[in-house]
């Protein structure tokens, strides 16, 4: 059974690129265009990994990550931040909020897939 990944990014082009790569690698992908939409996808369905942008409208990636870590069913789900933010402060903010990895954009799909395969839960 395919592993399910929640992909949260306000950029449709990034969702498309990441979606093609993930689906091509055999993952099932659920998409959301901001943190709030991402939270509404955490509705009891099993999610094996979350990939989230940082700078998004409505609810940003760090805020979304903090909410995920409070969620009883998803607090152990690994989260990868996929963002243009490359500053060390922001990275440490993500780390403190519970992110498992930080990938800077523009990203190579192969790099993202390698990180996903390392972190995706059985």
């Amino acid at each position: 059974m395919a592993k399910r990944i929640l992909l949260v990014d306000d950029s449709a082009s990034v969702r498309t690129v990441a979606g093609i790569a993930l689906r091509g690698a055999g993952y099932e992908v659920v998409e959301a265009s901001n943190g709030q939409e991402g939270l509404s996808q955490l509705n009891g369905e099993r999610i094996h990994l979350i990939i989230s942008d940082v700078n998004m409208p409505v609810l940003d990636g760090i805020g979304f990550l903090k909410e995920v870590k409070k969620h009883p069913n998803y607090k152990f789900t690994p989260v990868i931040m996929l963002t243009t933010e490359a500053g060390e402060d922001k990275k440490q903010e993500g780390r403190a909020a519970g992110a498992k990895a930080w990938i800077t954009k523009p990203f190579q799909p192969a790099v993202m897939l390698e990180a996903v395969s390392k972190l995706v839960m059985a």
Partner: peptide, 9 residues
């Protein structure tokens, strides 16, 4: 433009 890089925590 910076290249794609992964930082694992």
């Amino acid at each position: 433009v910076g290249h794609s890089a992964v930082t694992f925590f």
